[in-house]
Write a protein that binds this DNA or RNA. Structure first.
Lengths: 116, 116
DNA sequence: CTAAAACTTGACACAGATGTGAGGTTCAAG
DNA sequence: CTTGAACCTCACATCTGTGTCAAGTTTTAG
């Protein structure tokens, strides 16, 4: 699987995939000509990376957190704390978003009512 | 209420408050010496601005959406569509975050179990 | 073998909210 | 009146993921 295939399979641009590699989030084998080669599992990995990025984790954080998916032995107390902290951050963010959603929904609803 | 007071009351930096004003999100009276003066209601307004920013709305969008809180007559079909679009975006974001949260929570939980 | 498509590295650009510093003015307290 | 804190404007810096362009190499199809 070459970079273009992985890009097509995941929705990430080739540029982003190279960036993930540069940041240590994604590994690739190199063919004889130096071109990147990926395995099928990397599709899921990229999906996970994008999920976490979308949740506001930074590449540095993801780099710290991702290995424990692949290699269970890497999990240390430090990593557990890190995961916990990120989880808490995401939950706070969800709560904030719910509040914002209610604000927006209230506005939309009020508008609809006025239209009748 | 001067800018420092509003900053303290809202958690936003004075820099941010000036930026909000520059972007047309926040108004201020100016004293004789040119210094900004805010009313109590601005505390809530800044809170709302920060909520919306936190939800990923851009200042330009907030500028379009905010007036309908203050002035109900400004609500137009265009604005309704805008609000609806943002609402949808936020709901999608919430769904994505839930997925991510579950991923993180799963990792944390697995770690906890292993520790016992 | 050849041309086109896909890939490589490297560098620069952007967006958006905020930080930061300079240099100057105003306010509040002694 | 003086001094220090708070404020003013203006401008440049920062961070992070991604877009994009350039110049060159590899792969693939005909």
């Amino acid at each position: 699987m070459r970079i273009g295939d992985l890009a097509a399979a995941t929705g990430a641009s080739a540029r982003s995939l190279r960036y993930y590699e540069e940041q240590g989030l994604l590994a690739s084998d190199r063919g004889p000509g130096g071109q990147r080669s990926y395995c099928a599992a990397d599709v899921d990995r990229v999906g996970l990376i994008r999920s976490l990025l979308g949740a506001g984790l930074t590449t540095a954080t993801i780099r710290d957190v991702l290995p424990c998916v692949a290699d269970e032995s890497i999990r240390t107390p430090w990593l557990a704390a890190r995961l916990g902290a990120e989880l808490e951050r995401v939950e706070t963010q969800i709560a904030d978003l719910h509040r914002t959603r209610d604000i927006l929904a209230g506005l939309v609803k009020r508008y609809d009512v006025d239209q009748r």
